[in-house]
């Protein structure tokens, strides 16, 4: 296995721990080489933004972190991704267990066609996080509060989750993702379907979530990346071009491609 301690000491940035560490990751869709040689260390209790032009592989890389790419037949992954020093592509790792630890929020809000309560309770139920109904109720309430949607739905937990507005649905999905007590939260363009008000609600939420989680967010909005993230990774044509503190990326990018992208010349 991998020497975790060695890895940690070497990659320590600032005072925060490395949560996710990727080494030489390659992803192929059939013959299409979608991710090329990406190595990146993502810190705990930090918001990391992935930016880059459409089709550059942000979603693909994000899906590698919770092995959602396993569900795509033609996708093939090489390299190493570790969470807390454990190789998540190890043969002994059950992707189901991994996904309980690494939650995901999708681009399009996708609540289950069930009640709001059941949406949130589903994850804890299948992972056996609650011993009884009272505990489950508590988990659901906590998750909905963290999702900043509790006040809006507390009187209609039996109503279908699909009956909420787009922004509410997305916050419900976030609540659903945090209900399973993940340690990492992956968000693929979580605000692309939301209006500015809902977007700012979700952004506030992300800011709070970073106290407990390592959050990785894919976004097309430069402003959003600048607002919510502490670290930013710029992808281009499958390569990780630049990865640094958000402030540095937006004020003083090292690579010319990064500069062109954030100033709107490519993408």
């Amino acid at each position: 296995m991998y020497d975790a301690d060695h890895n940690r000491t070497e990659n320590r940035v600032g005072q925060t721990d490395i949560k996710i560490s990727a080494k030489d990751v390659q992803v192929y869709y059939g013959t299409n080489h979608a991710i090329k040689d990406v190595s990146v260390d993502i810190q705990d209790k930090t918001v990391t933004a992935f930016i880059g032009p459409s089709g550059c592989g942000k979603s693909t890389f994000l899906r590698c972190i919770n092995r959602m790419n396993d569900t795509i037949d033609i996708a093939r992954m090489e390299g190493l991704i570790e969470i807390d020093g454990e190789n998540i592509y190890d043969k002994r790792v059950d992707p189901v267990q991994l996904r309980a630890k690494v939650g995901m929020v999708f681009q399009k809000p996708n609540p289950f066609p069930k009640s709001i309560y059941d949406n949130v309770a589903y994850g804890p139920k299948i992972h056996g996080l609650a011993k009884n109904k009272a505990e489950l109720d508590e988990i659901v309430e906590t998750a909905l509060r963290r999702g900043a949607i509790w006040d809006e739905v507390k009187d209609r937990l039996d109503a279908p989750g699909t009956g909420l507005s787009g922004g509410q649905q997305q916050r419900l999905c976030i609540a659903r993702a945090v209900a399973t007590e993940p340690e990492v939260l992956l968000m693929d363009e979580p605000c692309s379907a939301l209006d500015p008000i809902a977007t700012s609600q979700v952004e506030e939420l992300i800011d709070e979530l970073k106290q407990n989680y390592s959050v990785v967010i894919v976004t097309h909005s430069m402003q959003q990346a600048a607002r919510v993230s502490q670290k930013t990774a710029f992808f281009h044509l499958g390569n990780l071009v630049e990865y640094d503190d958000t402030e540095k990326i937006f004020t003083n990018p090292q690579d010319s491609r990064t500069e062109s992208y954030i100033t709107g010349r490519i993408g």
Binding site: T71, V96, G123
Partner: peptide
């Protein structure tokens, strides 16, 4: 059944079978 339902279920850590039997099949 929209694929987003499947990814939603897998995303919260349901197994393939759970996603099928809890979400896809009822729909």
């Amino acid at each position: 059944v929209p694929p987003s339902i499947r990814s939603a279920a897998l995303g919260v850590g349901a197994s393939k079978m759970q996603s099928v039997f809890h979400h896809v099949l009822p729909l």
